[in-house]
Write a protein that binds this DNA or RNA. Structure first.
Lengths: 132, 132
DNA sequence: TGTAAACTCTATAGCAACTATAGAGTCAAG
DNA sequence: CTTGACTCTATAGTTGCTATAGAGTTTACA
């Protein structure tokens, strides 16, 4: 199968697939006589693995590490757990950050009623204010 | 005051201040004989405004729009409200996304007990699996 | 007065994970 | 045999900075 078909089947764009290859997440594809990339079902599986990891917001570096680990099926899977635990922590931290941000924004938003001029606007005042 | 002092007082790095100037968020600073940037308290206030907006995760484009609006103090402040409302919505959407992601990650994490090989690892299996 | 340290300048490259474009080549159908 | 759809490489753009190189300026001190 050529890259266009793989793109359709996987839901990744053609450029993204080429990008993953350049970055070493996919091994270099076989080539046709005319130098077109050719893929088999194993390549497709590998791409889907990458895609699933990315949909979980793992970084490409982490995906690479996981792919390397799957090449050593007999080794202990602590490292897999570590990568996931670290990532879960990151997600939790980011959620907390955003929730904090959200309450700040709601507070600021409450400073402005309708039909004011910019000069009177409590939001602008809040943004100009010294504190927090 | 020169850029280094402004950097210290504002908590922005020297490069960031120069970057903001290049991007049009700060007006071109006056220059000394030796071509060093010189700032007064108005420049400092403007920088602090930008900094406060950024701490709320507004984009530089939005900050620019807010700055433009503060130049027209007599006009209605609907646009200020719009920018903020849109941003609040974005933050809420992102929180929801991350919470969804978090439960997926927790689910996946639960698939692996201790002391397994990569081959047996439920996380890797989960990442390879067909469905979401 | 000399000089070394500390500061500033511009221009450029790097980060992450793609996306978009230009310009050229390949292939299948009518 | 030509048109259109596809593919190729290489390069630039996105966001909001950060880091570097190489040069010039200023300040402090001996």
């Amino acid at each position: 199968m050529k890259i266009g078909e793989l793109a359709k089947r996987s839901g990744c764009s053609v450029q993204t697939i080429r990008y993953y290859e350049r970055e070493g997440l996919l091994s270099s594809a076989a080539r046709s006589e005319g130098n077109f990339r050719l893929y088999d079902k194993y390549a497709e599986e590998r791409l889907m693995f990458v895609k699933r990891c990315r949909s979980l917001d793992l970084t490409l570096v982490e995906v690479k590490q996981l792919l390397t680990l799957t090449q050593e099926p007999g080794s202990a899977c602590d490292k897999v757990n570590q990568i996931l635990d670290l990532h879960i922590q990151r997600v939790e931290d980011r959620i907390a950050e955003l929730q904090d941000l959200h309450s700040q924004l709601i507070g600021l938003r409450g400073h402005c009623a309708e039909n004011r001029t910019v000069e009177q606007c409590g939001i602008i005042r809040g943004l100009k204010a010294e504190g927090g």
